[in-house]
């Protein structure tokens, strides 16, 4: 009898733990997320909003958005900004499947369009940054890569993004524009995978975003090429209709697209939209 009760207790306890563990990742679960908006201040309502804001952002935005999140928290007492950084198409799929996100920042228009078409955005997406490709090599550029055409040389182990992901789509556009056919040794699923293969010295050269190259300064050598302007990726941001914090979500999107966001993004190498 006693043992049975103990087991039942353990089962119930485990189940409760599991459930609470799952719930803690969703901002909707926080009971303190009540937005007390005084009638007097409609636009600056964010100043009195508290709670957790969940931002789904492209992997290439990791360092800039982490900084922006901290600044936003400082400017909005009681607000906690949490991020999920991943490939844009992953995030778009997650949002379409009901992931609890308040804001979506995509590395390309195509994935934002998926979310817009599904009717999941609360406002029209705003472009807030642009990014172009650059060549990275291991420190010192041992193979002496100087131009985009050099990447096609047979002795150079080149790693690029697969055409299915935004950075790979940009790589394909540059290939088409220049008429150079690349023969990479690997087509990675994310830009960070390309970067790590160059950093570790496995690859002789890789094509990544300018911002990734800046972020890895010292670990890789950057070789810019003029043809990169033929494939500019534009990053849009939008608050989501399913947001637990609709006002905060709008404020954060405006903050990123505004002067504060611009300053941080520019410092990291992002271009103006």
């Amino acid at each position: 009898m006693r043992r049975l009760r103990l087991v039942a207790l353990a089962v119930a306890g485990t189940a409760a733990l599991l459930l609470s563990g799952c719930a803690s990742s969703t901002p909707t679960g926080t009971a303190s997320s009540t937005t007390t908006t005084p009638a007097g201040s409609p636009s600056s309502s964010s100043l009195v909003s508290t709670g957790t804001l969940t931002v789904f952002a492209a992997a290439s935005l990791k360092s800039t958005f982490t900084t922006l999140g901290e600044q936003f928290e400082k400017a909005h007492a009681g607000v906690d900004v949490t991020f999920s950084f991943a490939g844009s198409s992953d995030l778009a799929t997650q949002i379409q499947n009901g992931a609890p996100a308040d804001v979506f920042a995509s590395a390309d228009q195509a994935n934002m369009t998926k979310v817009v078409d599904a009717g999941l955005t609360a406002a029209a997406p705003v472009p807030f940054a642009t990014n172009v490709l650059t060549i990275v090599t291991p420190p010192g550029n041992p193979k002496g890569v100087a131009t985009f055409a050099d990447l096609a040389e047979s002795g150079t182990a080149l790693v690029v993004c697969a055409p299915q992901v935004p950075c790979g789509a940009a790589t394909e556009r540059v290939e088409k524009a220049t008429g150079v056919t690349l023969t990479p040794v690997s087509e990675e699923s994310s830009v960070t995978d390309v970067l790590t293969k160059v950093e570790s010295g496995e690859a002789d050269a890789g094509l990544v975003y300018v911002t990734d190259a800046r972020g890895a300064a010292g670990k890789v050598t950057e070789v810019t090429f003029p043809e990169s302007s033929g494939a500019v990726n534009t990053y849009p941001i939008a608050p989501l209709s399913g947001a637990a914090q609709p006002e905060l979500a709008k404020d954060f999107a405006a903050y990123v697209a505004g002067p504060d966001g611009r300053a941080v993004l520019q410092a990291a190498g992002f271009g103006a939209p």
Binding site: P184, V185, S186, E187, E188, K197
Partner: peptide
């Protein structure tokens, strides 16, 4: 190993 059609994918 990386990821390339027919070689490592």
């Amino acid at each position: 190993a990386g990821s390339l059609q027919g070689v490592t994918r």
